[in-house]
Design a protein around this nucleic acid. Structure first.
Lengths: 238, 238
DNA sequence: GTTTATTGTCTCAATTTATTACAATAATAC
DNA sequence: GTATTATTGTAATAAATTGAGACAATAAAC
């Protein structure tokens, strides 16, 4: 940590200059679609978790690595959705502010103060199985409902909007539910994921018939208990 | 041109290093979906048209500029679909070969020989309205059916495959036909575009009913003549 | 004038989706 | 224990969409 002055700033010799990635990490608590947002030390600045690509590292691998470091999870569902490359998206003064807040004075030509193109990915993880870890520069990392995000730095709000739209568009063909839910789940839980992503209520009987008709679920005879009503089946993806 | 030695090689001071774009430019001749492929001087190497991003230029603007230079068209339908960033996609020996074939000896550390991440876009243009222009390094630029492409350098075949799949996925929601056809067209021509993109025959009556049901076409009383049969209506997009 | 190929539209069948209904049942209240 | 409550699984029916074929209309070729 920076208290001891032993946090090493990333050096351009190790990374591809001008290139970053940002990740929109989705989870679902059963009611709302949420994403992980981090807050930088002493700045009140909120941002998407992101990082840089090493000189000899695949772009996809860099993102997977960053995600592993933050969530402890490996083999996460991860999909690239857009590269953001406007000149005005880079805001050197923002980067300077958050470096300064952590006790760093960097030269004017420090590589992180230059223009960056970012490639954005979204990830789907099981909300309950993650204990997110802040990085060296950030204070906290927390779940926020996509309806109630804090103001984000630079163009990160646009990145989130684009991610949510992409998730909606891909809902049918990419088995989103599989990655946002635990291994076994009820039909109701699956429907709630769909509703959280689409932002609208669905008709129960139609949803059930459609999903079962896709022939992608296995039904388990083991029943879930806990509600004052008939116990539902548990399902898993085939 | 290089004969006179007065073609200037691009300098890294003007461009963002390690970052390129490639464009998959679609057209439709009425039967087949085609794309523009360029062939480099004296090399027998075929590639997608691409380029680099200037230091103070938006990513999207760079691609639009490249397209304008090659097709003479402005306001082209252009959509980003994927960034390719594997370490192994860059093949410095290929770049060296084609520079050499044009009479250039470049130093080992020349920026174009380094690793590149490319952001790929697809464009939709009206096949008949374009007179494509080769660039300084390339011999020719020609339409090729997506079924019969020459072998392409580096990962350009993968880029094309991804573009075609993206186009299929977007066929319904993005009014692809509008950008591949002239302003006025017959129902048959529109159907042929759909068939070329999907790679399958569609039923005439069903297609017509579906398209008209979308309420996106204006019908013009002016009739097209030329065939030994009833003259069809001309349509345009609303 | 006859033939030919294609067009615009209609009909009916097949399939899919929407809506309603209802019995089954696990927990709770009593 | 029994009635109550909320939710579940499934069936039945209505509505909408799509598939497949039929047919008259007609511009050009012969």
């Amino acid at each position: 940590m920076n208290k001891n002055g032993d946090l090493n700033l990333p050096l351009v010799k190790d990374y591809i200059p001008h290139l970053a990635y940002d990740s929109v990490i989705f989870g679902c608590n059963g009611e709302q679609l949420k994403i992980l947002i981090l807050e930088y030390h002493n700045t009140n600045l909120f941002a998407l978790p992101g990082g840089f690509v090493k000189r000899n590292e695949n772009l996809d691998s860099a993102v997977a690595r960053g995600l592993r470091e933050r969530t402890g999870l490996d083999h996460i569902y991860l999909e690239q959705f857009h590269a953001f490359g406007d000149t005005l998206r880079s805001r050197p003064e923002v980067m300077k502010t958050l470096l300064k807040a952590n006790g760093y004075e960097v030269p004017e030509d420090y590589w992180l103060l230059q223009r960056f193109i970012t490639v954005a990915y979204y990830a789907l993880i099981n909300y309950d199985e993650v204990q997110p870890m802040p990085d060296a520069l950030s204070d906290s990392i927390n779940w926020y409902s996509i309806e109630e995000l804090p103001p984000l730095i630079m163009d990160h709000s646009v990145i989130v909007k684009t991610a949510v739209q992409t998730l909606k568009d891909n809902l049918e063909k990419k088995l989103v539910g599989m990655n946002l839910l635990p291994a076994k789940f009820t039909m109701r839980e699956l429907q709630q994921v769909y509703e959280a992503v689409l932002g609208e209520k669905l008709r129960r009987t139609t949803f059930q018939r459609k999903i079962l008709g896709l022939d992608i679920l296995s039904r388990h005879e083991k029943l879930f208990s806990g509600g004052a009503h008939k116990a539902p089946y548990l399902y898993s993806f085939k």
